[in-house]
């Protein structure tokens, strides 16, 4: 970690200053690093946190630990509550969604296939959920990398890397609609378009497409609302955005794995307002972040594989809710 260690403090500080200077609008938040989510014993910490999800109803935070095939759940203060161990029923948990009753839909490997599973709030495996319906005709077998639920828990949004599609389905997996995320699937070269995470905040569905540097925002019916982001590596550009969250003020918080930084964009003006954090090893600095989530108290959670961190930043506007 020669350069990460050597440069982390300086770069983090400089990046923050640059971020402020780069902002072409008024500051909308004063993000402040708060803490790193920890498990109770030093010998058993998070291995490789893939995604992080907040339950806006209970305030709980769910983390998928891909390497240790488990879900870790924390309360809204960041205290560890319990874990749901995989191994038998699922491995490699990539993403999850929580419904208003606490049931979990998990995107993970189920046996040899990657798919969706329904777990109850204690982690009891209820069933696998397969996508079905005429909308799937002509598609290759889905490779589901991310999942989200509508606020009422009745509509499921699943991101399919194999078909470059956002599937909108009911809880049983019956697909109502497929939203193609590339201009032309037939001319798409495998590996050129990489999908990040899908998340739902309020009445908006946010889909991050890292390889294009764009965040596509839809309504709950899958109708396009707006696309934000601008591919690049200079300040306030989106190099490889992995995930996004929407706050109640209409601002979109983006985590960029390539630039290793957080950004705040305004959804309607489609302008970058501010950046936060930056690369490094020191507390609050990031290294190749995987996902982020925003809770109802204005805390942002960012997961990364390096040192198994899920870092918490305060000072944001609360998450958007359904009007």
């Amino acid at each position: 970690m020669r350069l990460l260690s050597a440069s982390s403090g300086a770069v983090f500080l400089v990046a923050s200053l640059l971020a402020a200077a780069a902002a072409n609008a008024e500051d909308v938040a004063t993000p402040l690093y708060h803490q790193n989510l920890k498990l109770p014993t030093q010998a058993d910490q998070l291995g490789f946190p893939g995604s992080v999800v907040t339950d806006l109803k209970t305030g709980e935070i769910f983390v998928t630990d891909i390497r240790k095939r488990r879900l870790a759940i924390f309360d809204q203060r960041g205290m560890f509550l319990y874990q749901i161990a995989g191994g038998e029923q699922f491995t490699a948990p990539r993403d999850l969604a929580v419904d208003p009753n606490g049931y979990i839909i998990l995107a993970a490997r189920l046996g040899e296939d990657r798919g969706l599973a329904l777990l109850d709030f204690d982690g009891l495996f209820i069933k696998a959920i397969g996508l079905s319906g005429e909308a799937l005709d002509g598609s290759v077998p889905p490779e589901l990398v991310s999942v989200a639920l509508s606020p009422d828990g009745q509509t499921m949004f699943a991101l399919d890397q194999a078909n470059y599609t956002l599937w909108i389905a009911d809880r049983e997996g019956k697909v109502r609609k497929g939203v193609l995320l590339v201009p032309d699937k037939s001319s798409e070269k495998a590996g050129d378009t990489l999908l990040g995470h899908v998340d739902v905040y309020g009445d908006k569905v946010l889909v991050a497409i890292p390889s294009t540097g764009l965040i596509h925002i839809y309504d709950l019916g899958g109708e396009p609302h707006v696309v934000i982001g601008r591919k690049g590596t200079s300040p306030c550009r989106t190099g490889f955005p992995m995930a996004a969250a929407l706050d109640r003020d209409g601002n979109v918080i983006i985590i960029d794995q390539q630039r290793t930084i957080g950004m705040i964009w305004n959804m309607e003006s489609r302008k970058c307002l501010q950046e936060f954090s930056g690369i490094g090893r020191s507390p609050g600095a990031m290294y190749q972040p995987n996902d982020l989530a925003l809770d109802s108290r204005g805390n942002v959670y960012v997961s990364q594989g390096f040192e198994g961190r899920v870092q918490v930043y305060k000072g944001f506007a609360p998450a958007a809710r359904t009007p």
Partner: peptide
């Protein structure tokens, strides 16, 4: 590759 430096320091690696 990242094409920018911060304060003269390459963003990550040489």
């Amino acid at each position: 590759h990242a094409s920018h430096e911060v304060d003269g320091i390459p963003l990550i690696s040489s």
